[in-house]
Simulated scan of single mutants.
Amino acid sequence: MNIQKWFVITFTFVSGVVFATQAPLVSIPTHDAFFSAIKQHCGKTFEGKVTVDNQPSAAFDAKLVMFIRKCDQAELQIPFYVGDNASRTWIIKKTGSGLSLKHDHRLKDGTNDPVTMYGGHTQDAGYNQIQSFPVDQYSKELFAQQGLPQSITNTWQIYIYPEMFSYRLVREGREFRVDFDLTKPIAAPAAPWGYKD
């Protein structure tokens, strides 16, 4: 098995002294392949379109753009622009027990939206091209607090193929999907709200 190891720092307190040690951050091949397939497009921007939406919203009747803006060994930051709205950034991260997907939502002044950093975590190996992120406990509690009980059964999926990147949301009675054409890069936009170039 081709296992890659990164390292995270953990801290141990003994008699008031802090000792730093390195613990391996282990990934499995399907997660690595999925992560790397997205990372290879780092720095590029692509236009997309809504291909499935069983509850159409006028909010998405705008130019849809994703920018694979920042990548390192453990994290990908992908702003998603809806017209002039630059409030959304998808964050895919290696956690040591799989992959997480978080939605960083900001207000125009860069501060956190009341509903932010929600998302989910992989629960299985998934596939090189597809990973699913069932809603996590933090997000369930956030949705309940914010009056969004319909979202506590969310599952997000991301597909990555040579010519297409897809973002999909599903729950009972709801399906939403945006497909991005990876064959036609476009000019990069400005940094999303709350981030700097």
Rank of each mutant, 00 (worst) to 15 (best):
R168G: 02
Q157G: 13
N112R: 14
V14C: 02
D53S: 11
V8D: 13
W6D: 15
T21A: 15
D61W: 01
G120F: 07
I28N: 06
H31M: 06
D124L: 01
V65M: 07
F60L: 06
V178W: 02
A20E: 13
F35Q: 08
Q146K: 14
D113T: 06
F46R: 07
L64Y: 05
Q129L: 10
D124W: 02
W156S: 11
V135C: 12
G194H: 04
L99M: 01
A62H: 09
G147T: 07
M1L: 10
K39P: 01
Q55G: 03
Y138C: 03
S97D: 00
T51S: 15
A190L: 09
Q4T: 15
D109H: 11
Q131H: 11
W90G: 07
P29F: 05
K5E: 11
S166V: 06
Q40C: 07
K49R: 15
P114S: 02
L25R: 05
A144S: 10
G16P: 05
V82C: 12
S97N: 08
A37H: 09
T95L: 15
W156L: 10
M66L: 06
G110F: 02
G147V: 11
N2Q: 14
G48D: 05
D181S: 13
Q73G: 13
E141K: 09
S100G: 09
T122K: 01
F35E: 03
V170D: 12
K102S: 14
Q22H: 12
A58F: 10
D72V: 05
K108R: 04
V50A: 07
P189F: 06
Y195P: 00
V26N: 08
G98E: 06
D104N: 10
E47N: 09
D53H: 00
C42W: 03
D104I: 02
Y81C: 01
I91S: 04
S36K: 14
Q137R: 04
H105P: 00
T153E: 15
I152N: 09
S139A: 13
Q73L: 14
V115T: 05
S151H: 14
R88Y: 01
T10F: 00
A86T: 00
T12P: 01
Y127K: 14
I9L: 12
